[in-house]
Structure formats: structure tokens, C-alpha cells
């Protein structure tokens, strides 16, 4: 069964690869952009799910970690000549000016920087419970934003960066996405993963069993921060422009919505919801732009998109709190069995 599963996993990866190869040649730029956003959103959703869904730490600091990842990565992949043009408010520090790295290293550095801040912030904050942790991490994200505005020699202040090289193509994004998926799946199935779930279900009981709660919370939090940083780094390269205004609470809200919709503590849920909600978010842009029916113009309604989504989030929390998947996961055995049953019924 183990070998069979590995083969099926590899097969699925190959199908994904083939699809990406086809998409690259046949789809227009806008659709490819949506595919890219899907990959990034899945990474972000998985990282928040690790922190909140599997370890039970209600964190609202995702936008902060993403900002750190995006800024670190962008500084490393912009070339020095470009940076000289960009920093018009105040000249950059020399180390900012000179920093350079290949894309992979830059994304890694973004993730590691975010993870570093995850440890730095997590160490004091993680002993706070539930809602207080949420507000404190939200405070952290806001502080990152204010710092980004007020350190013009590193971040170019409120103007941010423009013309970030678009290295983050389909292949990079999906490679990171698959790696994140693989890592989180293995982590959750490992001993540490069991400890995370024990802490989520009952922290006091976990402590009584002799688990080092603090260390495991910090581990989960900083790993989540790492992948949030990676997501931010990819997003920065994908949209080519970053500024402090972009990393506000709406960004965290979107990720939270994906995780809650998919199901807290369900990796499958995060992936499925990541795909569906990203497409819906783009598709509903139609509502906000003017619509033409013949000569007749239906004016666009700005704000309508988020009205729909916030309403959807409220409905999910009210009527289906466990999300689409609950804590269930996709597995090959179940798929094969149900396919087998169908085939069997057809045969008889």
C-alpha cells in the first residue's frame, strides 16, 4: 500500500506538471496569473492552518510575515542599478543597495527572515491565550507596516518597490506549493504533528503529559511564519509592486477565510478552498467593474466583492463551523475504493 501510494503521488505530481506545461503554452496571461495566485494562496493557507488549525494558536499576524518575506526577497532580486532609481526618498543603505541573490536563495531568505521574526515575536507572545494572541499578533503585523513606512532607507517608505523582477513563474510557484504541501503533510503525520494536535485539543492535558508545550508552539509558529514569508516573497515577485499599504488586514482576512472555509485542521480543505476562493475572488471582480449589455451600461459596484465574501464567512461560521472538509483528509485508499465500487456496480 505504501509503495502504491508513493506511485500515485508521483503520478499526481506528473499530471500537475503536464497541466502546467500545457497551461504555459495555451492560457492567456490573466489565467496564468490566477493559477499563480492559487499556488501562493495555498502556501499561505497551509501555513496558517499549521499555526491555527493544527496547533490551535489564533494568529492574525500573517500579513506581517508576508511583508517581511516580500521585502527581503525583493531587495535581493532587484538589481543595484534598479535600486538606485527606486530609492528617491532617501538613498538606500549600502548593504541594501548591494545585496543580491538568485531567486531561490532570495525566497529562502525571505522565509527565514519571517521565521526569525516568528521566533522573536512568538517567544514572548505565545503564552497568551486565544483571542489575546490574535490581537497581539495583529498588533505585530501593524507594527511591521508602520516600520516599513518609517524606514525609507531599507524599504523606500510609503512608495515601496516597483518593477520587481517577475521570476515567480508557474514552475517556481508550484514547486514551492508542492514542497509546502509535502512538508506540512509529513510534519502533521510525524510525532511533532501529534504533539501539535494534542496542544490544540487540550493544552493543560498536554502539559500534564509532560509535553514541552512552549517549545512545540514556537516550532509550529515559526514554521508557519517561514511559509508565510515564502508566500509573501513569491507574491511580491508575482505582482511586481509592493508597498506597505498592500500588507494590511485584508490580506490576513483572505487567508483566514480560505482556512476556515476549507476546514480547520484539514490540509485537503486548505488546498481545495485555496483553489475555489482564489478563482471566486478574481471572478467576482466582474461585479466591481462596469458591465456592458449592448449599449446599456450597468455601473460597477465597488466593495461588493468583499461584501459577498464576508457574508460567506459569517454564514460558514454560523452554519457549518467545521468548514467544507471538517478535519477529514483526502486519501488514495478512499478514492480507489469508491472508484472500485462504482466499476463493480457497472459490471454486475
Amino acid at each position: 500500500m505504501q509503495a502504491q501510494r508513493t506511485i500515485l503521488n508521483l503520478l499526481a505530481a506528473a499530471v500537475l506538471g503536464l497541466f502546467l506545461w500545457w497551461a504555459e503554452g495555451h492560457l492567456d496571461g490573466y489565467k496564468i496569473q490566477i493559477l499563480n495566485l492559487i499556488a501562493v494562496n495555498i502556501i499561505l493557507a497551509l501555513s496558517l492552518n499549521l499555526i491555527y488549525g493544527f496547533t490551535g494558536m489564533f494568529s492574525l499576524g500573517h500579513a506581517g510575515f508576508m511583508a517581511i518575506g516580500a521585502y527581503v526577497c525583493s531587495v535581493l532580486i532587484l538589481d543595484p542599478a534598479q535600486k538606485e532609481m527606486l530609492f528617491i526618498l532617501e538613498p538606500a543603505y549600502t548593504w541594501v543597495q548591494q545585496a543580491q541573490a538568485p531567486f531561490f536563495v532570495a525566497v529562502m531568505a525571505g522565509g527565514l527572515a519571517a521565521a526569525f521574526f516568528g521566533v522573536l515575536v512568538g517567544a514572548p507572545l505565545l503564552r497568551l491565550g486565544d483571542d489575546y494572541l490574535g490581537m497581539a499578533t495583529l498588533g505585530f503585523a501593524e507594527i511591521v507596516r508602520v516600520l516599513a513606512i518609517n524606514l525609507p532607507r531599507v524599504t523606500n517608505g510609503a512608495l515601496g518597490f516597483k518593477g520587481i523582477p517577475g521570476h515567480a513563474n508557474l514552475w517556481w510557484n508550484y514547486a514551492w506549493c508542492v514542497f509546502t504541501l509535502f512538508f506540512v503533510v509529513r510534519l502533521v503525520a510525524s510525532n511533532s504533528g501529534n504533539v501539535f494536535k494534542a496542544i490544540r485539543d487540550d493544552e493543560s492535558a498536554a502539559k500534564a503529559m509532560g509535553i514541552d508545550v512552549f517549545r512545540h508552539k514556537l516550532l509550529s509558529f515559526s514554521l508557519g511564519a517561514f511559509f508565510a514569508g515564502v508566500g509573501g516573497a513569491l507574491l511580491g515577485s508575482l505582482v511586481a509592486t509592493i508597498d506597505p499599504k498592500m500588507f494590511n488586514f485584508v490580506l490576513t482576512f483572505n487567508v483566514l477565510m480560505i482556512v476556515v472555509t476549507g476546514g480547520l485542521g484539514s490540509i485537503t480543505g486548505s488546498v481545495v478552498a485555496g483553489v475555489v476562493i482564489t478563482i471566486l475572488l478574481e471572478w467576482l471582480r466582474v461585479v466591481e467593474n462596469p458591465l456592458f449589455i449592448g449599449d446599456w451600461e450597468l455601473p460597477g459596484i465597488p466593495g461588493m466583492r468583499m461584501v459577498v465574501f464576508s457574508l460567506a464567512l459569517i454564514c460558514i461560521i454560523l452554519f457549518r463551523r467545521e468548514g467544507f472538509m471538517g478535519k477529514r483528509e483526502f486519501n488514495w485508499g478512499w478514492l480507489l475504493r469508491s472508484l472500485g465500487n462504482k466499476a463493480g456496480r457497472h459490471g454486475s
Binding site: D131, S310, I314
Partner: peptide, 11 residues
């Protein structure tokens, strides 16, 4: 309830 509150806020 807190997530619901965040939803209401955005709404």
C-alpha cells in the same frame, strides 16, 4: 464568535 465578528466588521 471572534471570526464571525471579523466577518461582520468587513461586511
Amino acid at each position: 464568535a471572534l471570526i464571525s465578528a471579523i466577518g461582520v466588521s468587513f461586511f
